[in-house]
Amino acid sequence: MISVRDLWKVYGPRAERIVGSPEADLPRGQLEAQHGNVVAMRDVSLDVAPGEVFVVMGLSGSGKSTLIRCITRLIEPTAGKVFIEGDDVTAANDDQLLQIRRHKVSMVFQHFGLLPHRTLLDNVAFGLELRGVDKKDRRERADRTLALVGLPGMGEYKPHQLSGGQQQRVGLARALATDPDIMLFDEPFSALDPLIRREMQDEIVRLRRELGKTMMFITHDLQEALRLGDRIAIMRDGRFVQVGTPAEVVLQPADEYVANFVRDVPRSHIVPVDAVMAPPSDGPFSGEVSADTKVRDVVALVAHNELPVRVVRDGATVGTIDRVGVLSVIAGEDR
């Protein structure tokens, strides 16, 4: 759905000349002092499959916000290509770009980006309005979308009357209302309280299950990345240092930087049973779980029963896991 190839973003005078040159590897301060350039993103490539949630995680200044803005050219990349459903976004003319923004992709912003002078309904209907949908239709759809995100019948409010979490539900509704194939999330929950953030993450999980959108999600919160992502890219100094499934990132960190990040992550929350199960054996079993069940979700089964649990995939038994297996994963956490 989304393909990115060798994408660069360099700020400052004559930025093209820095791309791929040895100067690009100079320390940040030196490059700025000598050439007046800053490299925000360097040589990033990625592919997001249909229906996948691809999370980009990094600290502030790592280039992740630049990356997501380059997808729809809110920021013009300096070099490289972006494809959406096979169309070359980087080569699109103004009109084609508007069509892509209006029909294929929508975005949810960190600071919500709601229009304070419009009612919630008109905020949600904004994308449809730009698309030229007539007033009655777009308001109907906006009304339904508001209900979908848990704000039914609130269409006549103004944004300032809502809490931050509620405002972001509106932001979400606005992105959903145009029914795009792809949704981009730029740290959408970082400004929210932990409890609300959790709730919103559940909302994303639910929407994804119900609507099956392709999503690219930016965050600086590892827990969030692990909860939502099918795959996670760790970004640092403008480049990807590791791309993989949550389990891969946690179990096989690519370098010291990533390892430091994931040190405190409770493995049992991440690791599926098939990653640590024993070979299949004959029963008796105390129960059965599917292969992608997280280890911690087996705890209840093995806690009161000595017998192992059968692991099944597509109806076939692929292995077993018992109390010792579970405990060793949990114990291994504090290495």
Binding site: T72, L74, H103, S106, Q110, L115, F126, G171
Partner: peptide, 10 residues
């Protein structure tokens, strides 16, 4: 933020 949001929606 709101200006960028509007642009992102085309």
């Amino acid at each position: 933020a709101p200006r960028e949001a509007a642009t992102s929606f085309g």
